[in-house]
Nucleic acid binder design. Structure first.
Length: 177
DNA sequence: CCCTGATTCGC
DNA sequence: GCGAATCAGG
């Protein structure tokens, strides 16, 4: 399929809107995302919202030795006691009553800012960069705030027949895979 | 493994 | 000019 003027127009528009190449390709139809990207480059509009990102320097030369110019240790100033790793995902066996809610105050705790007495309920995907902790105030005895404690330690309502419900005796349920 | 864009190069 | 193949990264 040829790049007609109006198709290019659509491409340009969608690209400017921030759609991904594959999405644009899907919408245009008849082209792959590679085609879209290729066209985008040929049109000279490769980087759209590039806040201070001159160009992703890429040594793409099969025969060219790669010069690794890395080594950049981020200096981290951790106040005091390092936050213990908050593990254990929500774990929704029978019924996930409440999902993790962001802070009402709009604040979030990151792995950097989490401290003692801050709720360590995970919010988001730990593998993502937007991973946060609840961060609300907690009792000294619990890693979670009230709301999240009630979720985390919820006594399994309906257990299998023959098994008694065990209240909140599960402080140390490790999750293994 | 899914996705993203970037680049190369034969067509 | 085009875009598949490939690469590099998230």
């Amino acid at each position: 399929m040829a790049w007609t003027d109006d198709r290019v127009e659509v491409l340009t528009k969608l690209w400017a809107e921030g759609l991904s190449a594959s999405q644009i390709a899907k919408q245009l139809g008849g082209v792959t995302r590679n085609a879209v990207i290729g066209k985008v480059h040929r049109l000279g509009l490769s980087g759209r919202a590039k806040p201070s990102r001159p160009a992703t320097i890429r040594t793409t030369k099969p025969s060219a030795p790669r010069t690794r110019t890395t080594a950049r240790t981020t200096t981290v100033t951790t106040p005091s006691a390092p936050a213990r790793t908050a593990r254990q995902a929500p774990a929704k066996p029978p019924t996930p009553p409440v999902e993790a809610k962001p802070l009402p105050s709009g604040e979030y705790a990151t792995i950097m800012t989490i401290r003692d007495h801050m709720c360590k309920w995970p919010i988001g995907d730990p593998s993502k960069s937007d991973f946060r902790f609840c961060g609300r105030k907690t009792d000294p005895s619990t890693p979670y705030c009230d709301a999240h404690s009630s979720v985390a330690y919820q006594p399994s309502r309906r257990r299998y027949p023959g098994q008694k419900t065990l209240g909140q005796t599960t402080m140390k349920h490790l999750q293994k895979r």
